[in-house]
Design a protein around this nucleic acid. Structure first.
Length: 431
RNA sequence: GGAGAGGUGGGUGAGUGGCUGAAACCAGUUCCCUGCUAAGGAACCGUACGUUAAUUCGUACCGAGGGUUCGAAUCCCUCCCUCUCCGCCA
């Protein structure tokens, strides 16, 4: 959510900046609603003041034994007028809320202006794309030669499409990857490990920006109605981790807060029917190790660089070739002010694919969550800045390892850093 | 799931219809006294929105949402959460 004052005062400028990300701000509607709001709010408060004053005088009159009947008669129609004004104001505020809650974040000035992923800007590259002196297989074919490591048929029997069952060494490598990531972030990068619920309420989803606009991307435990309090499966650990600081005022000395969690993530993938139907790339359920930081406003852009570096360090340790992209205005997520995507090299697809997305949300989520901190000596608490990033998506990392570490005989080498987590196994043998 | 008790400001905790935006204590901030590895005294000390020259004034908020009333932290209803006992269970 944007600063309502800024939105009001800099309406034209806001509209212009939002246009770069393909969002059309209804300037006229907002201006009209705001003008109404100001008048209506003032008049409603005046009515309330009058009622308070009169009620108080009734109380005093009664206490001193006077007859209060005439006073009561005077107040008669005040209540009706007040109720009407309140109702009108409530409706107006709801209308304004509906608009502002759906406005995406403003892009940072360092974000390239562009329409879609074609306009993202490559920042850096690590490693050189893996090449083979045999025809590279994709992870589905590779795993088929490894005791059916990835078993999509059984998963579709159990549940449906876009789910997977993993077997034996592949399952254990999947676990090893998550363990390795958590260990690295907690031991080397200063993140505190956190275990969180996988079901969250709608307040949490509103706080991080999934609601009210993107409810259809989530799995809900019961139909999400307007009043519904049904729980939803988390689409990312960003939701529970970030909402830990919702509705709280943090002492300055507690910042920065750096948290990491390994969780499954559940996404309905409603808008991607034909895309990535093969393999592990786009699943309804996947594991991810998430990084979240809560920082002081002046630190957030430096924190984004650091956090992205933490995610990169996993790819580097696994010696997977990747590139770092600065997302353009048109390709960024709803709440992001600036985002780096990390894209890993997938030989079979002969391309780079997203494996991590690291964003600085600045005060966008903090304002929705009312997450603030108090600086020493400051009278007013100030909104914190929040950041999050995948460190990394475990399923896609498994894909990248299988494809980049495959050998001509169908076996797959286990990356050195994972071997301690896999009982010293050096190679997953072909069947 | 059953029975009972509760949810008040950073913390503890008063407050059952008006003089309570909220006692008291602790923590915190500032000042005074004192000079020493302590203590004593005083003041300040919630958040948001609107308004103002202003820390001025106004409005709202005592788990959330409704209701009763001229007036609700206080009464009624619904929901959420916490605690105790019982049941069940990984």
């Amino acid at each position: 959510m944007l600063d309502p004052k800024f939105l009001r005062d800099e309406l034209a400028q806001t509209a212009q900046r939002l246009a770069t990300r393909g969002y059309t701000l209804d300037v006229d509607a907002i201006a009209a609603f705001e003008a109404q709001r100001k008048v209506l709010q003032a008049s409603t408060q005046d009515l309330q003041n009058e009622r308070n004053v009169r009620s108080k005088s009734i109380g005093k009159a009664k206490a001193s034994g006077q007859d209060i009947a005439p006073l009561l008669a005077e107040v008669g129609e005040l209540g009706d007028k007040l109720d009407a004004a309140k109702a009108e104001l409530t409706e107006l505020l709801a209308n304004i809320d509906a608009i502002t809650a759906g406005i995406p974040n403003l892009p940072h000035e360092s974000v390239p202006v562009g329409k879609d992923e074609e306009d993202n800007v490559e920042v850096s590259r690590f490693g050189t794309p893996t090449t083979f002196d045999f025809e590279a297989k994709d992870h589905v074919d590779i795993s088929a030669g490894l005791s059916n490591g990835l078993d999509f048929d059984t998963a579709s029997k159990l549940t449906g499409s876009r789910f997977v069952v993993m077997h034996s060494h592949v399952a254990s490598m999947h676990r090893a990857l998550a363990q390795f990531m958590l260990d690295k972030h907690t031991r080397e990068h200063g993140y505190a490990e956190v275990y969180v619920p996988y079901l969250v309420n709608s307040d949490s989803l509103y706080g991080t920006g999934q609601l009210p606009k993107f409810g259809e991307d989530l799995f809900h435990t019961k139909p999400a109605t307007e009043e519904g309090q049904g729980l939803s499966l988390i689409p990312t650990a960003e939701v529970p981790l970030t909402n830990i600081v919702r509705d709280s005022i943090i002492d300055e000395t507690q910042l920065p807060i750096k948290m990491t969690a390994h969780t499954p993530c559940f996404r309905s993938e409603a808008g991607s029917y034909g895309r990535d139907t093969r393999g592990l790339i786009r699943q309804h359920q996947f594991d991810k190790v998430e990084l979240v930081q809560v920082v002081k406003p002046e630190d957030s852009f430096a924190a984004l660089e650091a956090l992205t570096g933490h995610a990169e360090s996993i790819l580097q340790a696994l010696e997977l070739p990747y590139r770092k992209m600065n997302l353009c205005t048109g390709d960024m997520g709803f709440g992001a002010c600036k985002t780096y995507d990390l894209e890993v090299w997938l030989p079979a697809q002969n391309t780079y694919r997203e494996i991590s997305s690291c964003s600085n949300m600045v005060d966008f989520q903090a304002r929705r969550m009312q997450a603030r901190y108090r600086a020493k000596g400051a009278k007013k608490p100030e909104l914190v800045h929040t950041l999050n990033g995948s460190g990394l998506a475990v399923g896609r990392t498994l894909v990248a390892v299988l494809e980049n570490y495959q050998r001509a005989d169908g076996s797959v080498v286990v990356p050195t850093v994972l071997r301690p987590y896999m009982n010293g196994l050096e190679v997953i043998p072909a069947q």
